[in-house]
């Protein structure tokens, strides 16, 4: 007599098998891969941090070098402008006299 298939008879039985100690080995492989990935990630983060610190230090040095220089050059250009303004405010005769006296001055034309 033909018997209908009954899930209860077979239950959860499966024909699949695994090698001995397979699950422990698999767990070991996973932990190893995760550890390696974490170590690589930490290295990458440390490298990125070093680059950021280096760039910040370079920017700070550049700032230190540039700021006083600009200040000095502004002072210098400010002084020349004042001299020029004073010269322009002189009468024509006085300007001609000054030019005549100082045009051959060794220190002025250095």
């Amino acid at each position: 007599m033909k018997k209908d298939f009954d899930f209860g008879r077979i239950g959860k039985r499966m024909p699949y098998t695994v090698p001995r100690n397979f699950f422990d080995e698999m767990e070991g492989n996973v932990w190893e891969k995760v550890r390696n990935e974490s170590a690589a990630l930490r290295k990458r983060r440390a490298f990125r941090l070093r680059i950021v610190i280096g760039a910040a230090a370079a920017a700070a040095v550049a700032l230190l070098l540039l700021v006083p220089d600009t200040h000095v050059s502004r002072e210098r250009s400010g002084g020349l402008v004042e001299v020029e303004q004073a010269f322009n405010s002189l009468a024509g005769e006085d300007r001609a006299y000054i030019l005549q006296v100082y045009q051959d001055d060794l220190f002025m034309n250095e």
Partner: peptide, 30 residues
């Protein structure tokens, strides 16, 4: 670990493929 492996094994059949997929599953989970 066993539940995940057997679930994958029932879908892919081959032990080697199931091992590969199960390991990658746990790495992705972490």
């Amino acid at each position: 670990r066993e539940a995940v492996y057997w679930h994958i094994r029932r879908l892919v059949v081959s032990h080697a493929d199931a091992q590969d997929a199960a390991q990658e599953t746990f790495v992705r989970i972490f």
